[in-house]
């Protein structure tokens, strides 16, 4: 059996709750190929059994282990330690945009409440004799990208509108613009969400920093393929006088 080379790392992990907290350094010997979540589990098993960390699949598909590693929102299970600088501590802290429960665990319930408010899918009447629908593949492909979302909420966390400006009451965040785009652009959907997007969901607060796209572990092109197309549709409806005149004259 070949011995795997080990590396000694310092994990600087946030410990605390809503009232108080601090970074605590843990030194751990990690094996080749380990990810940050492995190292956190190692610390939990050997040095800090009370360390709170949420995780599930360890395969980048459940979206549970979202955190900030060296200051960037990431899935801990998809961040290899050998890709982080070797000569300095690895900071691991909870997501900043949501209330802290304890240590690395945050309360992300707000997201589920937001999702309930988005108007659900409302398909047109079936157009085939067998009571089903017909769609072109390319029309469905466009929204298929959005369905890759694993709801890790890293995009919500990095978005400065939520993270720095606390606009949770007026802005639904990139995750739910992606969700709204998946519904709004669906070839069968007949629901109209544009007024909601403009007024209630605050799509105008997005100033296109593309940070959501940068951190998405599923590589969804959030800004270019979801948010900007929705912004353009909102502009069509509310901010474009020529389009408005054409709509009045010729209908939608």
């Amino acid at each position: 059996m070949t011995a795997h080379p080990t590396r000694r790392v310092t994990l600087r992990i946030w410990r605390g709750d809503r009232n108080d907290g601090r970074f605590v350094d843990y030194v751990a010997d990690v094996d080749e190929g380990m990810v940050v979540l492995d190292a956190v589990h190692l610390v939990q098993a050997t040095q800090a059994p009370d360390l709170a960390v949420r995780w599930n699949c360890k395969a980048g598909k459940c979206g549970s282990c979202s955190a900030e590693v060296n200051g960037m929102p990431r899935l801990m299970c998809m961040t290899r330690i050998d890709q982080l600088p070797a000569d300095e501590p690895i900071t691991v802290e909870p997501m900043a945009a949501f209330p802290l429960v304890r240590d690395l665990v945050t309360d992300v319930r707000w997201n589920y409440e937001v999702k309930k408010k988005i108007r659900p899918f409302r398909p047109r009447k079936p157009d085939a004799a067998d009571g089903t629908w017909r769609m072109d593949q390319e029309d469905v492909d466009r929204v298929q990208e959005f369905r890759k979302c694993i709801e890790c909420f890293l995009c919500q966390n990095v978005c400065h509108v939520l993270r720095d400006h606390d606009k949770h009451a007026e802005f639904i965040g990139p995750r739910f613009f992606v969700y709204a785009a998946a519904l709004e652009m669906h070839p069968l959907d007949t629901e109209d969400r544009l007024a909601d997007l403009r007024h209630r969901d605050g799509i105008g607060y997005c100033n296109i920093t593309k940070c959501c796209t940068v951190v998405c572990p599923e590589h969804i092109t959030i800004t270019d393929n979801a948010i900007i197309p929705l912004k353009e549709r909102v502009a069509d409806r509310f901010y474009d006088p020529i389009r408005r005149a054409l709509r009045v004259l010729f209908g939608d």
Partner: peptide
Amino acid sequence: MSEAAGAPRRLR
């Protein structure tokens, strides 16, 4: 285990 310099979690 050692305590690192305390820094506010929320970056403001």
